[in-house]
Nucleic acid binder design. Structure first.
Lengths: 339, 339
DNA sequence: ATAGTAAACCAAAACGTTTTGGATGTCAAG
DNA sequence: CTTGACATCCAAAACGTTTTGGTTTACTAT
């Protein structure tokens, strides 16, 4: 490995001068600078990042811990979010330290290790939970972070979030305007803050139309297509089956559609199904999915940008961005069939 | 921030002794060790990782650069691969430095920076390309890496791969045994090595049954559901439409199914569709997808494990693992309909 | 008493960089 | 000839660890 000292010896200058020449300081003569740059290039010098980080006390690295609920987790939503964060980070010159931990003790230990160990400059916390231990930890330690999702623990801290309440309200309006009365929904885990926003939005929206969901028709899924399929099947087997099923994400909606089609039902006619997220697949499913579009890629990019901005300002202001989702009506919903 | 020197002062020992006590060396008296450990705990000491890395000259970090072809990339396959890699890395005490770059110059510069900068101990290279500049670079620099996928450039270097040739052969046999004669396929980009394995497997398998695909029925997709939908539509509009369409991944197969259903065709009866990968969604699509199962999660874990093993041995042997995929027959395929 | 051994400890070097706080030499202005 | 300004350079400290190569002390065996 070529080090600064090797270059210094070769050009007969001090390591100070070499360092300064390479870093664009003014107190190096043009000839020396050129000589040093050429020599560095010729010798194939690349600075040792670790040494730089230690000295600069800035890692130019963002921490991202993916909560893997089941070990095998397969979700297009995440790859898109990651692409949004990753591309923006690359653009801003930051690296991403990614790890996967199931929520719990280990996860918290990892946050502690990374934050105290000077390994990352800040975190992006995703999928916020109602009483989020991660956020509690970071707020206590005054460690920089931006969350994707709001948190009850500290409403002040910076976040980017979609307005799930509004999104589900749009779904409710859409379904009620189509004449649906017997509506069921498949929620996500109540630990997630977004679950509450979406559920309240749905209920509020229906209430406006004078409708309500009976408690037995609110089932809790786990955001996988499998759980959508299973819970959808259960709903469809009921003697009085719902005319519309609102799933809390697109993946579960796909599962519900399969369950319906397996029973010979035509989705969009015999039964309406809605999703949430607006992943690209929904456009090409059969039938195309009525859903609420949440710009996941953009959210990733914005979250990352907000964090970097906070890291680079000395008196970072808290920012709160609530994105307005929009309803995308496709063919998986239609007028309520009588009976 | 609490540093070793702070602890040393408090307990009246040298920093050497504190360091050695915390790292479990034998030449520290039991009482001193306990005192130091307690004090460290009490003061909330966490070692500065960067300083450790600089000294140990090992980063305990694996580099992973996701090639993002389109900025917005949404693929359940990747999140599962990442989970496999990430969980195994966590288990083995490694971190993951993840970045996203579109293939090209920038991507290569990033590989250079990370490898020469001592930022990572090794790389996991995914989605190998026919003449893979990344592999060329790493081999030239003798930098440790394990690839997911083979590479023509250096067949010797370590890899984990699925036997795409065999996998597609299984598809070919399955389709021919169902009596299909007019078969089309939607491939992936020819830059990927796996595309060639799969295509050759398909053609070889069909040849065994005395069948072939006319060149016009081999279309190139980009692995997204959208492209499956569009190319599928094109194939289905032909006057002589194929009775079976083999897509080179599951996502494109879903797109083909939508295109077929949109035209009132019953998938599995009027037309057979196959995928490749075996993502969980295929089990709950409508109809469930006949595909080749590739244990993506396991592949991620194995790749990671192989790399760590190589990093920890001083004379790492090259390893080559070719996983045998298995055919999963579901309802998206059926006997060829006459005509 | 003396040599040898083991236990407990530690000063200093090392990792590779950036930054601090000058030092040196040249030249123009007074 | 002196002073100040400026351009160019650099020794040493600093970042926070781990490791090297010891030293000191107490005890055991001769």
């Amino acid at each position: 490995m070529v080090r600064i000292v090797d270059i210094a010896k070769r050009v007969n200058r001090s390591i100070t001068t070499v360092s300064r020449a390479l870093n664009g300081y003014e107190d190096v003569s043009p000839e020396t600078r050129q000589l040093i740059i050429d020599t560095a290039e010729e010798m194939g010098y690349t600075p040792n990042s670790i040494a730089q980080l230690l000295q600069r006390k800035q890692t130019m690295t963002i921490g991202l811990v993916l909560p893997t609920f089941s070990p095998r987790f397969s979700d297009p939503y995440f790859s898109e979010l990651l692409a949004g964060i990753g591309n923006k980070a690359a653009e801003l010159g930051y690296d991403l330290l990614v790890s996967t931990r199931p929520p719990g003790e280990e996860e918290m230990d990892y946050y502690k290790k990374l934050s105290a160990g000077g390994r990352v400059d800040g975190f992006i916390v995703i999928r916020t939970r109602t009483n989020d231990a991660r956020i509690r930890l970071l707020v206590d330690r005054k460690f920089p972070f931006v969350a994707f999702g709001r948190s009850a623990y500290d409403p002040e801290s910076s976040f980017v979030d979609e307005d799930g309440h509004l999104g589900m309200q749009l779904i409710a309006e859409h379904l009620s305007s189509l004449g649906h009365k017997r509506i069921a929904c498949i929620t996500s885990n109540r630990d997630f803050t977004f679950t509450h926003h979406r559920l309240n939005g749905l209920l509020d929206g229906l209430a406006k139309a004078g409708l309500e969901i009976e408690p037995g028709s609110i089932l809790e899924g786990d955001l996988t297509q499998k759980s959508g399929y299973e819970l959808g099947s259960e709903l469809l087997e009921r003697k009085q089956r719902p005319t519309a099923i609102a799933a809390f994400n697109d993946l579960m909606a796909f599962g519900v559609m399969s369950a319906a089609q397996e029973r010979g039902l035509s989705v969009g006619k015999d039964i309406s199904v809605t999703g949430f997220d607006g992943i690209p697949m929904g456009e090409y499913s059969h039938p195309p999915l009525t859903t609420v579009s949440q710009p996941i890629y953009k959210i990733g990019a914005m979250t990352c940008e907000m964090l970097v901005k906070a890291l680079q300002s000395d008196s970072p202001a808290k920012e709160h961005i609530l994105l307005q989702p929009s309803l995308i009506v496709r063919q998986s919903t239609g007028a309520a069939s009588p009976g």
